[in-house]
């Protein structure tokens, strides 16, 4: 563990924690995390992971920064309007912490590229805003046995869960199939309080760091639901479903497929 004097200062509050120490900080610096989406959730997740010194952060996003994003997507700015979101976030994260290597993947995730993109990373973070991608990420993580930290937000409510494939539940154990197109409104249609992804993203980043350090209990087997208006955190138990189509005893989904496009309109 050879830290530079600068790193000793930067990570001093981590190093003095018994659960982190120099050894834990070294694990953080060697970790490789891939985030899908540099939007409301991806921005705070990446921001805190970069601050923590996560060695490699890959960001998958093929969208560009718009003015309507800046109410909640804190890694972007008026200076990066029109810039690819992965690229914009990379500039922010690397200026916060030059120790971090940010890899930009300016593609839309699909059944053909997902396994190849995920295979070199230790932990996957879902910060997407649509069901087809959410299910695709879940299924790919189950098949590759990659830990997945998933977050979702709408209006004043958010959810977080950690999926440790085959150890605990997966997204399909929780919701077998995506809801029909149009049933669940998008943030674009229903709105979202700008700070909400900050709360949920910070919880996701915490889960990622715990997984890297191997400390504490991950949110595997639970869904944490945050209600901002009522100030309630509810931790709901989610059993692993032995008949789950992807992680059950006799899986029926053994290959990845893309859901029809109309799902993407949400």
């Amino acid at each position: 563990m050879d830290f530079s004097e600068e790193q000793l200062k930067r990570y001093s509050r981590h190093i003095i924690l018994p659960e982190v120490g120099g050894k834990g900080q070294k694990k953080i610096s060697e970790a490789k995390v891939l985030m899908v989406g540099a939007g409301g959730l991806g921005c705070p997740v990446g921001y805190y992971l970069a601050a923590a010194g996560v060695g490699t952060i890959a960001i998958v996003d093929n969208d560009e920064v718009e003015l309507s994003n800046l109410q909640r997507q804190i890694a972007h700015s008026v200076k990066t309007l029109g810039v690819n979101k992965a690229e914009s976030a990379k500039q922010t994260f690397e200026s916060l912490n030059p120790d971090v290597n940010v890899v930009t993947i300016k593609e839309r995730l699909n059944s053909k590229n997902v396994k190849d993109l995920f295979k070199d990373y230790d932990i996957i973070v879902d910060g997407t805003d649509n069901f087809p991608t959410r299910y695709l990420i879940n299924d790919a993580c189950v098949m590759l046995k990659k830990p997945l930290v998933s977050g979702a937000i709408l209006r004043f409510e958010g959810q977080v869960t950690t999926i440790l494939p085959h150890e605990g539940h997966c997204y399909r154990c929780l919701f077998e199939e995506p809801p029909p197109p149009g049933l669940v409104p998008s943030c674009q249609e229903a709105g979202v309080l700008g700070v909400l992804p900050g709360v949920i993203g910070a919880l996701q980043a915490t889960e990622v760091l715990k997984l890297i350090l191997g400390k504490g209990k991950p949110l595997s087997g639970y869904l944490l639901i945050y209600d901002a208006l009522g100030v309630n955190f509810r931790k709901v138990k989610v059993p692993k479903n032995k008949d789950c189509a992807v992680c059950g005893d006799n899986p029926t989904i053994t290959e990845l497929t893309d859901l029809p496009e109309e799902y993407c309109s949400i």
Partner: peptide, 13 residues
């Protein structure tokens, strides 16, 4: 402080 503790912690590791 706090580098006295930071270095002592790293030393004991």
């Amino acid at each position: 402080c706090p580098y006295t503790l930071v270095k002592s912690k790293l030393g004991i590791e």
